[in-house]
Amino acid sequence: MTFLRVFACASLLALSSPVFAQGTQVAFGAIQQDTSAPVEVSADELSVDQNTSAATFQGNVVIGQGQMRLSAARVEVTYRTSGQGIERLQATGGVTLVSGPDAAEAQRADYNIDNGVIVMTGDVLLTQGQSALTADRMTVNLNDGTARMQGRVKTILQTGNN
């Protein structure tokens, strides 16, 4: 077998690695997130609906919890029916999530505070240092610092020859 054939076979094996599968597990965030930490929200506008126990923040929304930051054009906050704290956040419009050195962008993010899971959908882009992955959906588990990318996962592997 010639060198070129060996190189071609090795390249095809590399392309069939889990990174290119329909779902892949990746690390997310340098630290484990404290989902019991207080949530701080700032925005240009706030409207509250007492009947549905919801608040809608609009315009330059920035949310912080511990070392995590989420920004979006609009975020709807749903409070627990007991009135004790936040149950979930639903962010739309240019959503960016930053945790430690990792950052993710998407069209939408749904954050369930109780189980510490964020589901990002719509043109998801995850950057980790110089590496980047794209997918249709990313599920981040803040309790263990992992993320699962699903739906046409794609990345470019750097060979170090640049």
Score class of each variant (00 low, 15 high):
residue 16 S to Q: 13
residue 37 A to K: 04
residue 112 N to W: 13
residue 33 Q to R: 08
residue 18 P to H: 11
residue 8 A to S: 11
residue 97 L to C: 09
residue 147 A to T: 07
residue 103 A to D: 14
residue 46 L to A: 09
residue 46 L to P: 00
residue 13 L to Q: 09
residue 11 S to Q: 12
residue 58 Q to A: 13
residue 140 V to P: 03
residue 99 S to L: 07
residue 80 R to Y: 05
residue 55 A to T: 10
residue 68 M to P: 01
residue 90 Q to A: 13
residue 102 D to E: 15
residue 153 V to N: 04
residue 128 Q to H: 07
residue 40 E to F: 03
residue 84 Q to N: 15
residue 159 T to F: 07
residue 63 I to F: 02
residue 30 A to C: 02
residue 31 I to T: 14
residue 100 G to P: 02
residue 110 D to K: 03
residue 61 V to F: 03
residue 119 V to Y: 05
residue 24 T to I: 06
residue 147 A to H: 04
residue 47 S to R: 14
residue 3 F to Y: 09
residue 11 S to N: 10
residue 67 Q to H: 07
residue 87 E to K: 11
residue 74 R to M: 07
residue 146 T to P: 02
residue 39 V to D: 10
residue 102 D to H: 08
residue 82 S to A: 06
residue 66 G to Q: 09
residue 117 V to N: 07
residue 110 D to Q: 12
residue 57 F to Q: 02
residue 82 S to F: 01
residue 118 I to E: 06
residue 60 N to A: 05
residue 139 T to E: 15
residue 42 S to V: 11
residue 64 G to E: 14
residue 152 R to F: 05
residue 88 R to K: 15
residue 91 A to R: 02
residue 127 T to C: 00
residue 24 T to A: 10
residue 45 E to W: 03
residue 127 T to K: 09
residue 68 M to W: 00
residue 48 V to Y: 15
residue 74 R to F: 00
residue 3 F to M: 11
residue 71 S to C: 02
residue 110 D to R: 10
residue 15 L to W: 14
residue 17 S to W: 13
residue 37 A to R: 05
residue 27 A to D: 15
residue 129 G to Q: 08
residue 47 S to I: 11
residue 123 D to H: 04
residue 37 A to D: 14
residue 8 A to Y: 07
residue 29 G to W: 03
residue 56 T to W: 04
residue 124 V to A: 01
residue 61 V to S: 04
residue 26 V to I: 14
residue 150 Q to A: 15
